[in-house]
């Protein structure tokens, strides 16, 4: 073997990673970090969920899936799970409508559009704790803004309690929507900007009204953004702890005690680590199922609509030439 051949061989081993090998090396590096920092705690959490811990006796006893059963069928956990679902559902609906609405408005031409685009991002930039402060200022019954503004108009009665036991969770979802919707707005704005103006013009020539233009031109192009917003808001709503903890701490009573708050109390108030861990898995499983379901449903549909959109574009191009 000549020296030159040896050099070539050496190069083929060192500098000659193929592109997939190179990418895989990076990804495995990053994932390894994640596996250690997430899978290990998760495994530990799973182990905890199979054990009944008694802090006073400092004992730990293997109980199998008993605590999972308790977490599933205990009334307190069930009620918290339902509250989490309600909170997520209201947040998702409000966020979707609001962020799409804001995106459609910000996609119009009007003076000051650039400034407004910058401004609407601000609620997203502030923390959940500060969001809680602001909405407390809005909703406080004795001196808050809503009552201060609405009482003189006779819309609400004296000292109306907004965060009452029927509506507190709803208003938490409103506050959460205020915080999270700007993110959705920017996903929608980015999608709206990819729609060729020609399509709107063509639709207008075909005498399509505002609603039919939205349905046939806008919607197919933003379908993927809808998916993103659905997933992001759902996941964030199920994860949400900070806002509820800072604003109502689960009250009044336990009416806003969503699952993350209950798990927090199991852990730090009652030291029921096993039950807390088992309940955590319920939360994880629901959130994962929803996220995966969205993706499966929407990606199947987006592929179809992409093909349809491409065909429409081709047809329009063929007509205009």
């Amino acid at each position: 073997m000549t020296a030159l051949q040896r050099v070539a061989l050496w190069r083929s081993r060192s500098g000659g990673l193929t592109d997939p090998q190179f990418a895989l090396a990076i990804v495995i590096g990053v994932l390894l970090f994640h596996v250690i920092i997430i899978i290990v705690p998760l495994a530990y959490s799973f182990w905890l969920s199979l054990h009944e811990t008694n802090v006073i006796l400092r004992s730990r006893e293997y109980v199998g899936f008993d605590l999972w059963g308790e977490a599933l069928f205990e009334e307190e956990t069930q009620s918290a799970t339902l509250k989490s679902l309600y909170f997520a559902a209201v947040s998702v609906v409000l966020s979707l409508v609001l962020s799409l609405g804001m995106a459609l408005v910000l996609n119009q031409e009007f003076p000051g559009r650039g400034i407004l685009r910058a401004l609407i991002l601000l609620p997203w930039a502030v923390s959940e704790v500060v969001t809680a402060t602001m909405w407390t200022v809005m909703l406080e019954p004795s001196w808050g803004f809503f009552n201060g503004a609405l009482q003189p108009l006779g819309i609400v009665g004296e000292g109306h309690v907004w965060l009452n036991k029927d509506w507190a969770l709803f208003w938490l979802a409103v506050a959460f929507t205020w915080h999270i919707a700007p993110l959705g707005t920017f996903f929608f704005l980015a999608a709206l900007q990819t729609i060729p103006q020609d399509l709107y013009n063509a639709a207008r020539i075909d005498r399509a009204g505002v609603i039919s233009r939205f349905y046939h031109v806008t919607l197919p192009h933003i379908r993927y953004a809808v998916l993103i917003v659905l997933v992001v808001v759902t996941v964030e709503a199920f994860r949400q702890f900070d806002l509820v903890f800072a604003m109502t701490s689960g009250g009044p009573g336990t009416t806003t005690q969503i699952l993350p708050l209950l798990i927090f109390r199991y852990n730090f108030q009652f030291s029921q680590y096993g039950l807390a861990s088992a309940s955590s898995f319920i939360l994880i499983i629901i959130a994962t199922i929803l996220a995966v379901a969205y993706f499966v449903l929407m990606t199947r549909r987006t592929k179809q609509t992409r093909v349809a959109a491409a065909q429409r574009r081709a047809a329009i191009a063929a007509e205009s030439s």
């Binding site: 994640h34 705690p41 905890l48 994860r239 993350p260 898995f281 994880i284 959130a287």
Partner: peptide
């Protein structure tokens, strides 16, 4: 692998609180 990475985002922070604290 991408899904695996993204799914870790679904994890609620409270779910890994105690393991983190213990570790």
């Amino acid at each position: 692998l991408l899904f695996g990475l993204l799914l870790t985002r679904v994890l609620p922070p409270v779910a890994i609180l105690i393991p983190y604290f213990t570790m």
